[in-house]
Amino acid sequence: MTAYLVATRHGLVELSKNRLAAVILLCLIPVVITLAYVVVTDEALVFRHRTMDVQITAWGNETSTISVAVNLVSQLVGFAMFAAAHRAGEFDRRLVGAGYPRLALIAAKLTTLALTAAVVSGYATVWVGWYWQVQQPPLLWLGLFLSGVVYGSMGLFLALFLPGELEGLFVIILATVIDMVLQNPIINPTADSGTIALLPGYGGTQLGLAAGFTDSMPTSAIAVSALWAAVLSAIAFGAFCLRTRNRLSTARHNRLLATAPGDATVGDRGDSAG
């Protein structure tokens, strides 16, 4: 438990020092939501809500604030988690090699992800609600939260093989923009292609639109987001376990040649070359 608490506290300390993410959070979220509300047309828009299979009539600018909020939360949490995982990669390996419980580190990373997504989503929900009356603000928060968790998991996943933070930032921005453009009701009001349901931000966007303009809760959208987050996290943490595997301790457990408590052996898969 102590290992988990210490890793969580240190993870949050580390994350809180990401100045780029802090600037995006504090400045960009209000600015972009304001721009979406002020600049986008305020004419009525009719679009199909896929998961509930209903037609919704809403103002264009209000709909846009939901799309950009999903996009911003996804980018911010995705990049923050990517940067934290990328910076800590080698250090985590050393820490686990020294004996730090791997499960405590994984649980701490999941907690950090959830807390980050919760705070960022709360902030974005407040700003959307500042401009117009969202029918179900908690559901909007949930939609944004799930989008953040999905892209945060993606950030953890990308950190395993992308070489630098610039590459991570680029891929996350690209993925979220493609996601937003294809699902934006202004650009694609019929949303009749089945492929849309496969996008990572699909569940979050569907929840956000339902929260804004209906009093229903599309539970299937929650399941889609949860599935995306679970799959990406499982891959990321599976790879984390493989990367932090210590061959010495593995051999110790296998008792290949160990002769006394605390002994460890690695290798021994062939003849000595002498």
Binding site: G97, L256, D263
Partner: peptide
């Protein structure tokens, strides 16, 4: 213990302290 040899073995008695060439810190 970071890498596995293709052939051969490494045996340690007791705990290991490893200081990598470049500081591995947070």
């Amino acid at each position: 213990g970071e890498l596995t040899p293709d052939v051969g073995s490494v045996h340690l008695d007791g705990s290991l302290g490893y200081c990598p060439q470049h500081p591995v810190l947070n």
